Amino acid sequence: MLKSMTGFGRSEIANERQKITVEMKAVNHRYCDINVKMPKKLSIFEAGIRNLLKKYIQRGKVDVFIT
């Protein structure tokens, strides 16, 4: 089965104090290239996010935006 390497997704979660938005964009690419953009105070989670994505993504250029 062929799986697409191109896509876009967005999710939001909010409560009384905060709102978190995650957007992901993926395009075809020869290697696995994952870029994560997020506020500096959340940067401690970057390695964990990158490792989690690598479990599901073998190749492609993936941009993750967290606000």
Rank of each mutant, 00 (worst) to 15 (best):
G9P: 04
K54V: 03
I44N: 11
K41I: 03
G7C: 08
N28K: 11
L2R: 06
E12T: 07
F8S: 14
F8W: 13
I44W: 15
K19H: 01
Y31W: 15
G60E: 05
Q18K: 05
R50C: 14
K61H: 12
K61V: 05
D33M: 04
G48S: 12
N51V: 08
M5H: 00
F45N: 00
Y31K: 11
N28S: 10
M38F: 03
N51Y: 05
D63Y: 08
R50T: 08
I57T: 07
I57F: 05
I49C: 09
E23V: 02
R17W: 13
M5P: 02
K54F: 04
A14N: 08
L53W: 14
R10E: 11
G60D: 07
N51W: 01
E12N: 00
I57Q: 00
D63T: 14
S11A: 14
A47F: 05
N15T: 02
V22A: 10
F8G: 03
A47M: 15
D33Y: 07
N28A: 05
K41W: 15
D33H: 00
K3L: 05
E46N: 09
H29M: 07
K25T: 12
E23K: 02
I20G: 01
T6I: 06
F45P: 07
Y56C: 06
L42V: 03
C32G: 15
F45I: 07
V27D: 10
K61I: 10
H29Y: 12
K55E: 09
I44L: 15
L2C: 15
N51T: 00
I57P: 02
V64A: 00
F45E: 06
F8I: 13
N51M: 04
R59K: 07
V27H: 10
P39N: 04
V22G: 05
G48C: 00
K25A: 12
I57R: 03
N51Q: 02
K37D: 14
N15P: 00
E12F: 03
R10N: 06
K37F: 12
E23R: 03
S43V: 03
E46I: 05
T67E: 10
T67P: 11
I20Y: 04
Y56R: 00
T6P: 02
K19S: 11
D33C: 08
V36H: 02
F65E: 12
Y31N: 13
G60L: 11
R30F: 09
R17K: 10
C32F: 15
M24S: 08
N51H: 11
Y31T: 12
I49L: 07
K55N: 07
N28Q: 03
G9E: 10
S11T: 08
I44S: 13
I49V: 09
M24L: 13
K55H: 00
Y56S: 13
L53C: 05
K55Y: 00
Y56F: 14
V36S: 04
T67S: 14
I13W: 12
E12Y: 12
R30W: 08
G7P: 01
G60H: 10
I49G: 11
Q18G: 03
I49E: 06
I34P: 04
Q18Y: 04
M38L: 08
L42T: 09
S4E: 15
K3D: 13
